[in-house]
Design a protein around this nucleic acid. Structure first.
Lengths: 124, 124
DNA sequence: GTGGATGCAAACTCTTTGCACCTTG
DNA sequence: CAAGGTGCAAAGAGTTTGCATCCAC
């Protein structure tokens, strides 16, 4: 996937514009505005290659497929609303998270997921 | 799933004996020792109902299917070894994790995942 | 005896892959 | 023009469901 094509540009544009992690289906829906007729397989192929080059990172949440977001955004975590199912970025990081591991475990990465109700859903 | 059957007992026994989160396939393999001929669908059905009653909780990790473990064990988190792929329980919890959420978000649950190398894999 | 539980196989969902055709460089 | 990218459809993996049969109560 080294060649520059309209499809690849569309995926990059969609991911840059996203304010939250997107799944392949959401990426396709947004990319279709630029490239009518684009196929889901092409989305998967580009997400995979952009992830392998380190431009995108995976965001996995319980009970749903993999989402992706830009690798370049600052260290942060995620909040999933139990009501509307949307996923939000949460800036910052708890202290001492990696210190939790028992002696002998070497931690080089961590992920924090919060679950609850987002502002939109808690004030009807 | 309110009736007491050998299959249900087998799933409960397997889960109680497990020292780490198990996926449905692992549960079936262990249950087959007690109930030869048991089907994977029955495992899924019992895992689902035991989860709905709150006896089991889901443990989702990036890049793999859902695992389950007893809900009764103390609040803890998980460590996945990038080398041997095993998943370990990590006792305790970081301070202020739920305080990360921006104003307006109501947090009622959280999950922390650590990734790195376990003691077995770091001392060859 | 009766309704819930089970095993099997088919259905479903999500993701990947094979292939003929099209596009970029 | 050649190498690589694309869309479609089929193939896979994991999970759920329909149904006839079986078993706990």
């Amino acid at each position: 996937m080294a060649r520059n094509t309209g499809q690849k540009d569309a995926v990059r544009r969609v991911m840059k514009a996203a304010k939250r992690p997107l799944n392949p289906q959401e990426v396709l829906e947004r990319a279709l505005a630029d490239i009518p007729g684009m196929g889901i397989a092409t989305v998967y192929r580009h997400l995979k290659s952009l992830n392998e080059t380190g431009w995108l990172v995976c965001v996995d949440l319980p009970g749903e497929g993999t989402r992706f977001e830009l690798a370049s955004i600052a260290h942060h975590h995620h909040f999933k609303c139990d009501t509307c199912e949307r996923v939000f970025d949460v800036p910052g990081c708890a202290q001492d998270v990696e210190g939790l591991a028992p002696d002998g475990f070497v931690v080089d990465r961590h992920e924090v997921l919060l679950f609850g109700v987002c502002p939109d859903c808690s004030t009807p």
